[in-house]
């Protein structure tokens, strides 16, 4: 955080091609966008539009085939795999549509797992995990197995897992896709709270109700990213 004016994530004409030759699929072409610290950005588009590909590249899980992507000023393409892995462990939190909780580990263990690979001392992991569970309002479920929880609670556990190591940015891939409307709503409220506490949030979704929650909305269509004109900062009370 040496220069808070520089964008946290900066994509310039980023493209991603799967396969080659005639079978090549251009999942992403010319994606240019910036995400600043404290932003709450949603990436919207119909399924198959390339938004998940975009998120995977931003998450350092995938590499673009063209263009440049700078994460916190560092060219991600030039980073060796070990460094990219390190960035995932330390700086980026993930929330998946399918939760991806380990069924045979307790809620606390699932949350603590996000700190397994990032030099967090063993002793402070549990404290941080419980802290994160409190932030998502699940302290009373700390010793449950995920299989005993409702869908909304599971996603909250997944969010707690993502935020427990205090990442710089939270990347969410259809976080409400597996939830009913009411539960999804409560997850969105949670994002709002997290953003208010200074976390950068990027949400990929095809659901306008989710997307409109954000400060900025990016539209992905046929692999192209378009920034919708307004930065219509919504008043929280509007909810």
């Amino acid at each position: 955080m040496n220069n808070s004016a520089a964008p946290l994530m900066e994509l310039e004409r980023v493209g991603r091609v799967f396969g080659d030759g005639e079978a090549a699929v251009h999942a992403l072409t010319d994606a240019t966008l910036r995400v600043h610290r404290g932003d709450y950005v949603s990436i919207m588009g119909p399924s198959g539009s390339g938004k998940s590909t975009l998120l995977n590249i931003m998450a350092l899980l995938d590499r673009q085939t063209s263009g440049t992507y700078r994460f916190d000023g560092v060219d991600a393409q030039s980073l060796p795999e070990g460094r990219r892995t390190g960035l995932r462990a330390h700086r980026i939190g993930f929330v998946f549509q399918a939760f991806h909780l380990l069924a045979h580990r307790s809620v606390t263990e699932n949350v603590a797992m996000s700190m397994l690979y990032n030099r967090m001392p063993r002793s402070s992991r549990r404290t941080l995990a419980l802290e994160a569970l409190e932030r998502v309002g699940l302290s009373h479920r700390a010793d449950f197995l995920p299989t005993k929880l409702s869908g909304g609670e599971r996603q909250r556990v997944a969010i707690a897992r993502a935020i427990a190591p205090h990442p710089t940015v939270l990347l969410c891939d259809e976080p409400t896709g597996n939830l009913d409307q009411v539960t999804g709503r409560s997850i969105l409220d949670l994002f709002e709270e997290l953003r208010a506490s200074g976390l950068t949030v990027v949400v990929v979704t095809h659901d306008p109700r989710v997307g409109l929650q954000a400060d900025r909305i990016l539209e992905v269509e046929d692999g192209r990213v378009e920034m919708l004109p307004q930065s219509n900062r919504r008043v929280p009370s509007e909810r």
Binding site: D72, T85, G86, H90, R91, L116, Y117, N118, R119
Partner: peptide, 20 residues
């Protein structure tokens, strides 16, 4: 957060045993 971005991922051997 500091400038932890340069740190590589690592895994304590005790954690490895617990996970296994």
């Amino acid at each position: 957060m500091k400038s932890r971005q340069t740190t590589r991922a690592r895994l304590d051997w005790r954690d490895l045993i617990v996970e296994a």
